[in-house]
Design a protein around this nucleic acid. Structure first.
Length: 409
RNA sequence: CGGGGCGUCGUAUACCGGCAGUACGCAUGGUUUGGGACCAUGUAGACUGGGUUCAAUUCCCAGCGCCCCGACCA
Protein backbone atom coordinates (compact mmCIF):
# COMPACT_ATOMS: atom_id res chain seq x y z
CA UNK A 1 0.00 0.00 0.00
CA UNK A 2 1.33 3.39 -0.97
CA UNK A 3 0.92 5.98 1.74
CA UNK A 4 0.06 8.58 -0.89
CA UNK A 5 -3.01 6.64 -1.97
CA UNK A 6 -3.99 5.19 1.40
CA UNK A 7 -6.73 6.87 3.42
CA UNK A 8 -4.47 7.74 6.33
CA UNK A 9 -3.67 10.93 8.14
CA UNK A 10 -1.72 11.03 11.37
CA UNK A 11 -2.12 13.94 13.73
CA UNK A 12 0.62 14.06 16.30
CA UNK A 13 -0.80 17.22 17.84
CA UNK A 14 -4.18 15.71 18.55
CA UNK A 15 -5.59 16.01 22.05
CA UNK A 16 -4.48 13.76 24.85
CA UNK A 17 -7.24 11.65 26.38
CA UNK A 18 -7.65 9.78 29.64
CA UNK A 19 -6.27 6.59 28.19
CA UNK A 20 -3.28 5.72 26.08
CA UNK A 21 -5.29 3.78 23.56
CA UNK A 22 -7.69 6.65 22.93
CA UNK A 23 -4.81 9.07 22.45
CA UNK A 24 -2.50 6.94 20.33
CA UNK A 25 -5.19 5.41 18.15
CA UNK A 26 -6.51 8.87 17.33
CA UNK A 27 -3.09 10.40 16.79
CA UNK A 28 -2.20 7.52 14.49
CA UNK A 29 -5.37 7.82 12.45
CA UNK A 30 -6.63 4.36 13.42
CA UNK A 31 -9.96 5.55 14.76
CA UNK A 32 -12.11 8.63 14.60
CA UNK A 33 -14.61 9.53 17.25
CA UNK A 34 -18.13 9.99 15.98
CA UNK A 35 -19.65 10.60 19.39
CA UNK A 36 -19.00 9.65 22.96
CA UNK A 37 -18.12 5.98 23.03
CA UNK A 38 -18.63 5.51 19.30
CA UNK A 39 -15.75 5.32 16.86
CA UNK A 40 -15.15 4.86 13.16
CA UNK A 41 -12.53 2.29 12.32
CA UNK A 42 -10.43 4.11 9.77
CA UNK A 43 -8.65 1.97 7.17
CA UNK A 44 -5.46 1.31 9.10
CA UNK A 45 -7.45 0.63 12.26
CA UNK A 46 -9.72 -1.75 10.42
CA UNK A 47 -6.69 -3.70 9.25
CA UNK A 48 -5.75 -4.31 12.88
CA UNK A 49 -9.30 -5.19 13.90
CA UNK A 50 -9.63 -7.58 10.95
CA UNK A 51 -6.45 -9.35 12.00
CA UNK A 52 -7.64 -9.71 15.55
CA UNK A 53 -10.99 -11.01 14.36
CA UNK A 54 -9.31 -13.41 11.91
CA UNK A 55 -7.40 -14.98 14.79
CA UNK A 56 -10.56 -15.18 16.88
CA UNK A 57 -12.39 -16.73 13.93
CA UNK A 58 -9.69 -19.35 13.33
CA UNK A 59 -9.80 -20.52 16.91
CA UNK A 60 -13.58 -20.41 17.12
CA UNK A 61 -13.84 -22.52 13.99
CA UNK A 62 -12.20 -25.35 15.91
CA UNK A 63 -15.07 -25.47 18.40
CA UNK A 64 -18.06 -23.90 16.67
CA UNK A 65 -19.67 -22.68 13.48
CA UNK A 66 -19.92 -19.08 12.39
CA UNK A 67 -23.21 -17.39 11.62
CA UNK A 68 -24.48 -13.83 11.70
CA UNK A 69 -27.49 -12.66 13.63
CA UNK A 70 -29.14 -9.26 13.27
CA UNK A 71 -28.13 -6.28 15.38
CA UNK A 72 -31.80 -5.38 15.72
CA UNK A 73 -34.39 -7.52 17.45
CA UNK A 74 -38.02 -7.28 18.51
CA UNK A 75 -38.69 -6.21 22.06
CA UNK A 76 -40.90 -9.26 22.55
CA UNK A 77 -37.90 -11.58 22.64
CA UNK A 78 -36.50 -9.63 25.57
CA UNK A 79 -39.85 -9.62 27.31
CA UNK A 80 -39.79 -13.41 27.11
CA UNK A 81 -36.62 -13.50 29.18
CA UNK A 82 -37.63 -10.52 31.33
CA UNK A 83 -34.47 -8.69 30.36
CA UNK A 84 -36.02 -5.48 29.08
CA UNK A 85 -34.90 -3.89 32.34
CA UNK A 86 -31.18 -4.20 31.65
CA UNK A 87 -30.07 -0.62 32.18
CA UNK A 88 -27.66 -0.52 29.25
CA UNK A 89 -30.23 -1.81 26.79
CA UNK A 90 -30.71 0.48 23.81
CA UNK A 91 -33.94 0.87 21.92
CA UNK A 92 -34.46 1.87 18.30
CA UNK A 93 -37.65 3.25 16.84
CA UNK A 94 -38.93 5.32 13.96
CA UNK A 95 -37.27 8.68 14.01
CA UNK A 96 -40.36 10.70 13.17
CA UNK A 97 -44.12 10.56 13.38
CA UNK A 98 -44.61 9.32 9.85
CA UNK A 99 -42.49 6.25 10.35
CA UNK A 100 -43.98 5.60 13.76
CA UNK A 101 -47.44 5.47 12.23
CA UNK A 102 -46.20 3.03 9.68
CA UNK A 103 -44.71 0.82 12.31
CA UNK A 104 -45.57 1.11 15.93
CA UNK A 105 -42.95 -1.34 17.14
CA UNK A 106 -39.85 -0.48 19.06
CA UNK A 107 -36.74 -2.54 18.61
CA UNK A 108 -33.81 -3.51 20.72
CA UNK A 109 -30.24 -2.89 19.60
CA UNK A 110 -28.75 -6.09 20.89
CA UNK A 111 -26.08 -6.09 23.57
CA UNK A 112 -25.91 -9.88 23.49
CA UNK A 113 -27.73 -12.57 21.54
CA UNK A 114 -29.12 -15.25 23.82
CA UNK A 115 -32.59 -13.98 22.99
CA UNK A 116 -31.88 -14.41 19.30
CA UNK A 117 -29.91 -17.62 19.17
CA UNK A 118 -32.10 -19.67 21.48
CA UNK A 119 -35.27 -19.55 19.32
CA UNK A 120 -33.16 -20.11 16.21
CA UNK A 121 -31.64 -23.28 17.66
CA UNK A 122 -35.03 -24.35 18.93
CA UNK A 123 -36.47 -24.34 15.42
CA UNK A 124 -34.23 -27.08 14.12
CA UNK A 125 -32.34 -28.81 16.90
CA UNK A 126 -34.75 -30.82 18.98
CA UNK A 127 -33.39 -34.37 19.10
CA UNK A 128 -30.80 -35.71 21.54
CA UNK A 129 -28.94 -36.75 18.38
CA UNK A 130 -28.37 -33.12 17.48
CA UNK A 131 -26.34 -32.29 20.59
CA UNK A 132 -23.94 -30.81 21.37
CA UNK A 133 -23.46 -27.93 18.97
CA UNK A 134 -22.17 -24.39 19.08
CA UNK A 135 -22.54 -21.31 16.91
CA UNK A 136 -20.78 -17.99 17.06
CA UNK A 137 -20.71 -14.64 15.37
CA UNK A 138 -18.52 -11.56 15.27
CA UNK A 139 -20.73 -8.54 15.25
CA UNK A 140 -21.46 -5.03 16.40
CA UNK A 141 -23.04 -4.75 19.82
CA UNK A 142 -24.70 -1.85 21.59
CA UNK A 143 -24.70 -0.84 25.24
CA UNK A 144 -25.95 2.44 26.50
CA UNK A 145 -23.08 2.99 28.88
CA UNK A 146 -23.79 5.65 31.46
CA UNK A 147 -20.32 6.89 30.93
CA UNK A 148 -18.32 5.74 27.93
CA UNK A 149 -14.60 6.10 28.55
CA UNK A 150 -11.08 5.00 27.79
CA UNK A 151 -11.29 4.92 24.02
CA UNK A 152 -12.03 1.45 22.75
CA UNK A 153 -12.16 -0.02 26.22
CA UNK A 154 -15.68 0.99 27.11
CA UNK A 155 -17.77 2.08 24.16
CA UNK A 156 -21.47 2.27 23.49
CA UNK A 157 -21.09 0.53 20.16
CA UNK A 158 -18.40 -2.10 19.86
CA UNK A 159 -17.45 -5.33 18.17
CA UNK A 160 -17.83 -8.62 19.93
CA UNK A 161 -17.41 -12.28 19.18
CA UNK A 162 -20.14 -14.21 20.91
CA UNK A 163 -20.35 -17.98 21.01
CA UNK A 164 -23.30 -20.03 22.23
CA UNK A 165 -23.19 -23.72 23.01
CA UNK A 166 -26.05 -26.19 23.48
CA UNK A 167 -25.91 -29.41 25.45
CA UNK A 168 -27.98 -32.30 26.69
CA UNK A 169 -26.81 -31.98 30.24
CA UNK A 170 -24.59 -30.06 32.59
CA UNK A 171 -21.67 -32.46 32.34
CA UNK A 172 -21.47 -32.02 28.62
CA UNK A 173 -21.71 -28.25 29.01
CA UNK A 174 -18.83 -28.25 31.46
CA UNK A 175 -16.69 -30.41 29.18
CA UNK A 176 -17.24 -27.94 26.38
CA UNK A 177 -16.67 -25.03 28.75
CA UNK A 178 -13.14 -26.31 29.29
CA UNK A 179 -12.58 -26.47 25.54
CA UNK A 180 -13.59 -22.84 25.24
CA UNK A 181 -11.11 -21.93 27.97
CA UNK A 182 -8.37 -23.55 25.92
CA UNK A 183 -9.42 -21.83 22.70
CA UNK A 184 -9.57 -18.48 24.48
CA UNK A 185 -6.17 -19.01 25.99
CA UNK A 186 -4.79 -19.69 22.52
CA UNK A 187 -6.42 -16.54 21.15
CA UNK A 188 -4.95 -14.30 23.83
CA UNK A 189 -1.54 -15.90 23.33
CA UNK A 190 -1.74 -15.33 19.60
CA UNK A 191 -2.55 -11.63 19.93
CA UNK A 192 0.33 -11.16 22.33
CA UNK A 193 -1.54 -11.00 25.62
CA UNK A 194 -0.86 -14.54 26.80
CA UNK A 195 1.42 -13.74 29.67
CA UNK A 196 -0.71 -11.12 31.38
CA UNK A 197 -4.15 -12.57 30.79
CA UNK A 198 -5.52 -14.48 33.76
CA UNK A 199 -8.52 -16.76 33.91
CA UNK A 200 -10.42 -15.21 36.78
CA UNK A 201 -13.25 -16.63 38.79
CA UNK A 202 -16.20 -14.27 38.87
CA UNK A 203 -19.84 -14.23 39.75
CA UNK A 204 -22.36 -15.38 37.21
CA UNK A 205 -23.88 -11.92 37.05
CA UNK A 206 -27.32 -11.60 35.60
CA UNK A 207 -27.05 -14.95 33.86
CA UNK A 208 -26.73 -17.46 36.60
CA UNK A 209 -26.53 -17.79 40.32
CA UNK A 210 -23.38 -19.83 39.86
CA UNK A 211 -19.88 -18.88 38.72
CA UNK A 212 -18.42 -17.60 35.52
CA UNK A 213 -14.90 -17.02 34.33
CA UNK A 214 -13.42 -13.81 33.05
CA UNK A 215 -10.27 -13.45 31.02
CA UNK A 216 -8.62 -10.48 32.65
CA UNK A 217 -5.58 -8.79 31.18
CA UNK A 218 -3.47 -7.06 33.77
CA UNK A 219 -3.44 -3.46 32.68
CA UNK A 220 -3.38 -0.10 34.43
CA UNK A 221 -6.21 1.24 32.33
CA UNK A 222 -8.40 -1.69 33.34
CA UNK A 223 -11.56 -1.11 35.34
CA UNK A 224 -11.55 -4.34 37.28
CA UNK A 225 -9.42 -5.52 40.13
CA UNK A 226 -8.32 -9.11 40.22
CA UNK A 227 -6.94 -10.82 43.28
CA UNK A 228 -4.44 -13.59 42.73
CA UNK A 229 -4.25 -15.96 45.66
CA UNK A 230 -0.57 -15.96 46.61
CA UNK A 231 -0.78 -19.56 47.73
CA UNK A 232 -2.71 -21.23 44.94
CA UNK A 233 -2.21 -18.77 42.11
CA UNK A 234 -5.96 -18.78 41.46
CA UNK A 235 -7.31 -15.43 40.32
CA UNK A 236 -10.57 -14.04 41.64
CA UNK A 237 -12.48 -10.98 40.64
CA UNK A 238 -12.33 -8.67 43.64
CA UNK A 239 -16.14 -8.87 43.97
CA UNK A 240 -15.97 -12.54 44.98
CA UNK A 241 -12.53 -12.84 46.55
CA UNK A 242 -12.98 -14.87 49.76
CA UNK A 243 -12.02 -13.23 53.02
CA UNK A 244 -8.99 -14.28 54.99
CA UNK A 245 -6.61 -15.05 52.17
CA UNK A 246 -3.62 -13.12 50.92
CA UNK A 247 -3.74 -11.79 47.41
CA UNK A 248 -1.64 -10.04 44.88
CA UNK A 249 -3.96 -7.36 43.50
CA UNK A 250 -3.87 -6.01 39.97
CA UNK A 251 -5.91 -3.66 37.88
CA UNK A 252 -7.16 -5.55 34.88
CA UNK A 253 -9.35 -5.29 31.83
CA UNK A 254 -11.87 -7.96 31.01
CA UNK A 255 -11.10 -9.11 27.47
CA UNK A 256 -13.25 -12.22 27.50
CA UNK A 257 -15.79 -14.02 29.59
CA UNK A 258 -17.48 -17.37 29.66
CA UNK A 259 -20.78 -18.23 31.33
CA UNK A 260 -22.44 -21.56 31.99
CA UNK A 261 -26.00 -20.42 31.43
CA UNK A 262 -27.42 -23.83 32.24
CA UNK A 263 -31.17 -23.77 31.66
CA UNK A 264 -31.85 -20.06 32.18
CA UNK A 265 -32.66 -19.29 28.56
CA UNK A 266 -33.95 -22.68 27.48
CA UNK A 267 -36.37 -22.44 30.35
CA UNK A 268 -37.55 -18.98 29.32
CA UNK A 269 -38.14 -20.12 25.75
CA UNK A 270 -39.19 -23.60 26.77
CA UNK A 271 -36.47 -25.06 24.60
CA UNK A 272 -36.47 -28.79 25.11
CA UNK A 273 -35.10 -31.71 23.15
CA UNK A 274 -36.46 -35.25 23.00
CA UNK A 275 -34.22 -37.65 24.87
CA UNK A 276 -33.55 -41.35 24.13
CA UNK A 277 -36.72 -42.31 25.97
CA UNK A 278 -38.94 -39.87 24.13
CA UNK A 279 -39.09 -37.47 27.05
CA UNK A 280 -38.58 -33.74 26.67
CA UNK A 281 -35.57 -32.32 28.52
CA UNK A 282 -34.42 -28.73 28.92
CA UNK A 283 -31.34 -27.79 26.92
CA UNK A 284 -28.19 -26.66 28.74
CA UNK A 285 -26.47 -23.63 27.31
CA UNK A 286 -23.27 -21.69 27.63
CA UNK A 287 -22.31 -18.27 26.32
CA UNK A 288 -18.85 -16.95 25.67
CA UNK A 289 -17.73 -13.48 24.61
CA UNK A 290 -14.64 -11.66 23.45
CA UNK A 291 -14.79 -7.93 22.79
CA UNK A 292 -12.60 -7.55 19.73
CA UNK A 293 -12.48 -3.76 19.72
CA UNK A 294 -11.74 -3.70 23.43
CA UNK A 295 -8.99 -6.23 22.78
CA UNK A 296 -7.49 -3.80 20.29
CA UNK A 297 -7.54 -1.06 22.92
CA UNK A 298 -5.99 -3.27 25.57
CA UNK A 299 -3.20 -4.29 23.19
CA UNK A 300 -2.31 -0.62 22.71
CA UNK A 301 -2.38 -0.12 26.47
CA UNK A 302 0.08 -2.97 26.84
CA UNK A 303 2.35 -2.32 23.88
CA UNK A 304 3.53 1.22 23.34
CA UNK A 305 6.34 3.57 24.21
CA UNK A 306 6.75 7.34 24.25
CA UNK A 307 6.87 7.39 20.45
CA UNK A 308 3.74 5.44 19.75
CA UNK A 309 2.19 2.02 19.42
CA UNK A 310 4.19 -1.21 19.16
CA UNK A 311 1.84 -3.72 17.55
CA UNK A 312 2.55 -7.41 18.05
CA UNK A 313 3.43 -8.90 14.65
CA UNK A 314 0.37 -11.13 14.56
CA UNK A 315 -2.03 -8.19 14.42
CA UNK A 316 0.06 -5.34 13.03
CA UNK A 317 -1.67 -3.41 10.23
CA UNK A 318 1.42 -3.92 8.06
CA UNK A 319 4.61 -5.89 8.61
CA UNK A 320 6.92 -3.23 7.31
CA UNK A 321 7.03 0.52 6.90
CA UNK A 322 9.06 1.25 3.80
CA UNK A 323 10.42 4.77 4.00
CA UNK A 324 11.50 5.99 0.59
CA UNK A 325 13.72 9.01 1.16
CA UNK A 326 15.21 11.46 -1.34
CA UNK A 327 12.09 11.67 -3.46
CA UNK A 328 13.79 14.21 -5.75
CA UNK A 329 16.34 11.63 -6.80
CA UNK A 330 15.04 9.46 -9.65
CA UNK A 331 17.38 6.55 -9.01
CA UNK A 332 16.48 6.33 -5.37
CA UNK A 333 12.77 6.55 -6.12
CA UNK A 334 13.11 3.79 -8.70
CA UNK A 335 15.00 1.64 -6.23
CA UNK A 336 12.37 2.18 -3.55
CA UNK A 337 9.64 1.31 -6.03
CA UNK A 338 11.45 -1.91 -6.91
CA UNK A 339 11.88 -2.88 -3.30
CA UNK A 340 8.21 -2.14 -2.66
CA UNK A 341 7.29 -4.50 -5.48
CA UNK A 342 9.75 -7.13 -4.27
CA UNK A 343 8.34 -7.03 -0.74
CA UNK A 344 4.77 -7.28 -1.99
CA UNK A 345 5.68 -10.14 -4.31
CA UNK A 346 7.14 -11.97 -1.34
CA UNK A 347 3.80 -11.71 0.39
CA UNK A 348 4.94 -9.12 2.91
CA UNK A 349 2.43 -6.48 3.90
CA UNK A 350 4.09 -3.16 3.36
CA UNK A 351 3.13 0.45 3.84
CA UNK A 352 5.28 2.34 1.38
CA UNK A 353 5.82 5.92 2.46
CA UNK A 354 6.28 7.51 -0.93
CA UNK A 355 5.50 11.05 0.21
CA UNK A 356 7.90 13.89 -0.44
CA UNK A 357 8.35 14.96 3.16
CA UNK A 358 11.23 15.20 5.59
CA UNK A 359 12.82 11.93 6.72
CA UNK A 360 12.09 12.68 10.35
CA UNK A 361 8.39 12.99 9.61
CA UNK A 362 8.45 9.51 8.08
CA UNK A 363 10.36 8.01 10.97
CA UNK A 364 8.05 9.48 13.52
CA UNK A 365 5.02 8.21 11.60
CA UNK A 366 6.58 4.76 11.45
CA UNK A 367 7.02 4.81 15.22
CA UNK A 368 3.59 6.25 15.95
CA UNK A 369 1.86 3.70 13.71
CA UNK A 370 3.74 0.92 15.47
CA UNK A 371 4.60 -1.15 12.43
CA UNK A 372 7.00 -3.97 13.45
CA UNK A 373 9.75 -3.24 10.94
CA UNK A 374 11.07 -0.16 9.23
CA UNK A 375 12.99 -0.37 5.99
CA UNK A 376 14.71 2.70 4.59
CA UNK A 377 15.80 3.28 1.02
CA UNK A 378 17.83 6.41 0.39
CA UNK A 379 20.84 7.75 -1.43
CA UNK A 380 22.93 6.47 1.45
CA UNK A 381 21.74 2.87 1.33
CA UNK A 382 23.16 2.12 -2.12
CA UNK A 383 22.22 -1.35 -3.36
CA UNK A 384 21.24 -2.36 0.12
CA UNK A 385 18.46 -1.32 2.47
CA UNK A 386 18.42 -0.31 6.06
CA UNK A 387 16.24 -2.35 8.39
CA UNK A 388 15.34 -2.17 12.03
CA UNK A 389 12.53 -3.42 14.18
CA UNK A 390 10.20 -1.01 15.95
CA UNK A 391 11.87 -1.67 19.29
CA UNK A 392 15.50 -1.63 18.15
CA UNK A 393 17.49 1.56 18.38
CA UNK A 394 20.16 0.61 15.86
CA UNK A 395 19.61 -0.02 12.18
CA UNK A 396 21.45 -2.53 10.05
CA UNK A 397 22.33 -2.30 6.40
CA UNK A 398 21.54 -5.51 4.56
CA UNK A 399 21.04 -6.89 1.07
CA UNK A 400 17.50 -6.88 -0.20
CA UNK A 401 17.27 -10.66 -0.27
CA UNK A 402 18.44 -10.86 3.33
CA UNK A 403 15.96 -8.17 4.30
CA UNK A 404 13.08 -10.09 2.78
CA UNK A 405 14.17 -13.24 4.57
CA UNK A 406 14.23 -11.41 7.87
CA UNK A 407 10.80 -9.86 7.37
CA UNK A 408 9.27 -13.17 6.36
CA UNK A 409 10.65 -14.88 9.45
C1' C B 1 -26.85 8.42 37.55
C1' G B 2 -24.30 12.30 41.24
C1' G B 3 -20.25 16.04 40.93
C1' G B 4 -16.89 19.23 38.19
C1' G B 5 -15.13 21.43 33.60
C1' C B 6 -15.44 22.98 28.59
C1' G B 7 -17.90 24.29 23.60
C1' U B 8 -13.61 29.62 18.89
C1' C B 9 -10.92 27.56 11.39
C1' G B 10 -10.03 20.33 9.77
C1' U B 11 -6.77 19.86 14.62
C1' A B 12 -4.64 22.24 19.07
C1' U B 13 -5.17 26.74 21.47
C1' A B 14 -5.31 32.59 22.67
C1' C B 15 -7.63 37.21 23.42
C1' C B 16 -11.73 40.41 24.01
C1' G B 17 -18.63 43.85 25.79
C1' G B 18 -16.68 47.31 19.96
C1' C B 19 -12.54 44.59 12.70
C1' A B 20 -11.31 37.11 16.27
C1' G B 21 -5.17 35.98 16.74
C1' U B 22 -1.34 32.10 16.79
C1' A B 23 0.53 27.15 15.70
C1' C B 24 -0.28 22.58 13.10
C1' G B 25 -2.87 20.80 8.81
C1' C B 26 -4.37 21.79 3.82
C1' A B 27 -3.17 24.64 -1.17
C1' U B 28 0.52 27.23 -4.46
C1' G B 29 5.64 28.75 -5.44
C1' G B 30 10.74 28.67 -4.07
C1' U B 31 14.82 26.77 -1.15
C1' U B 32 15.64 22.09 1.33
C1' U B 33 16.34 16.52 2.36
C1' G B 34 18.55 10.76 7.74
C1' G B 35 14.41 11.91 13.63
C1' G B 36 8.45 16.03 13.13
C1' A B 37 12.62 21.51 7.42
C1' C B 38 12.51 26.84 6.04
C1' C B 39 10.56 31.27 3.55
C1' A B 40 6.52 33.59 1.00
C1' U B 41 1.42 33.72 -0.36
C1' G B 42 -3.22 31.60 0.44
C1' U B 43 -7.29 28.62 2.88
C1' A B 44 -10.68 28.18 6.84
C1' G B 45 -13.75 29.45 12.73
C1' A B 46 -17.34 31.77 17.69
C1' C B 47 -22.62 24.67 19.13
C1' U B 48 -28.13 26.05 19.06
C1' G B 49 -32.09 29.06 20.94
C1' G B 50 -33.64 32.96 24.13
C1' G B 51 -32.35 37.23 27.38
C1' U B 52 -29.42 41.78 28.96
C1' U B 53 -27.05 45.79 25.99
C1' C B 54 -26.36 51.15 21.42
C1' A B 55 -23.33 46.78 20.56
C1' A B 56 -22.64 39.70 22.70
C1' U B 57 -17.96 35.11 20.40
C1' U B 58 -17.47 37.52 25.29
C1' C B 59 -22.36 38.49 30.45
C1' C B 60 -27.12 35.62 32.02
C1' C B 61 -30.70 31.41 31.15
C1' A B 62 -32.10 27.00 28.62
C1' G B 63 -31.09 23.10 25.28
C1' C B 64 -27.60 20.06 22.90
C1' G B 65 -22.68 18.13 22.77
C1' C B 66 -17.91 16.74 24.55
C1' C B 67 -14.24 15.86 28.48
C1' C B 68 -12.90 14.47 33.52
C1' C B 69 -13.86 12.33 38.74
C1' G B 70 -17.13 9.03 41.21
C1' A B 71 -21.11 5.38 41.01
C1' C B 72 -22.36 1.55 37.58
C1' C B 73 -20.41 -2.22 34.34
C1' A B 74 -24.79 -8.58 30.69
Amino acid sequence: MRYSSFFLHTNKDAKEFDSINATLLQKGGFIDQTMSGVYTMLPIGLRVLNKIEAIVREEMDTIGTEMLMPALSPRSLWETTKRTEIDVLLEARGANDASRKRNDASYILNCTHEELVTPIAQKSKSSYKDFPFAVYQIQTKFRNEERAKSGLMRGREFRMKDLYSFHKDEDDLLTYYEQVKKAYTTIFERVGLGEDTKITLASGGDFTTGFSHEFQTICDAGEDIICIDTETGIAYNEEIAPEGKTYEKHKASEVGNIFPLNIKFSNAFNYTYMDENGKPQLVYMGSYGIGTTRLMGVIVEKFHDDKGIIWPKSIAPFTVYLAGLNRDDEDTVRKADEIYTALKTSGIEVLYDDRDIAPGAKFSDADLLGIPYRVVVSKKTGDQVEVKSRTEAETSLVDIAACIERLKG
